[in-house]
């Protein structure tokens, strides 16, 4: 495959980008993902998982079975925040670092 060929279209990551991550020591899809952002875009690796795993395997002279599957996370489809919020108790999660901060009361300096 040509070095400039795009392999992750969401984030426009090329074969060369993958090679550079692998040359730094990355061995799994997740390692390469953290360095390059491949698979982190809108499709969440649904399109590029296979080809990138195969490329890593080829570059590392391993078999495809040795390249573990990246962590695939919910939500499985992009969902608007308003939809996600619609059915949960409101405010059940509002906490703040401000509320938790404990200003000195003069005892410690």
């Amino acid at each position: 495959m040509d070095k400039s060929t795009i392999v992750c279209r969401c984030e426009e990551i090329t074969v060369e980008d993958i090679a550079s991550a692998v040359s730094q020591g990355a061995e799994t899809f997740d390692d390469v993902k953290r360095l390059t952002r491949c698979g982190m875009g809108l499709c969440q690796a649904k399109t590029c998982r296979i080809v990138i795993s195969e490329l890593i395997a080829e570059m590392k002279a391993k078999s495809a079975a040795d390249i573990s599957v990246p962590r695939l996370r919910m939500p499985l489809r992009p969902v608007p925040i308003g939809v996600l919020a619609a059915n949960t108790a409101s405010g059940s999660f509002v906490r703040s670092t401000l509320a938790e901060a404990e200003p000195d009361e003069g005892q410690e300096k």
């Binding site: 969440q44 962590r71 996370r73 919910m74 939500p75 992009p78 969902v79 608007p80 308003g82 919020a85």
Partner: peptide
């Protein structure tokens, strides 16, 4: 943010 889509969590 109501219309913004969540694409992943970690």
């Amino acid at each position: 943010l109501a219309k913004a889509k969540i694409v992943r969590s970690f």
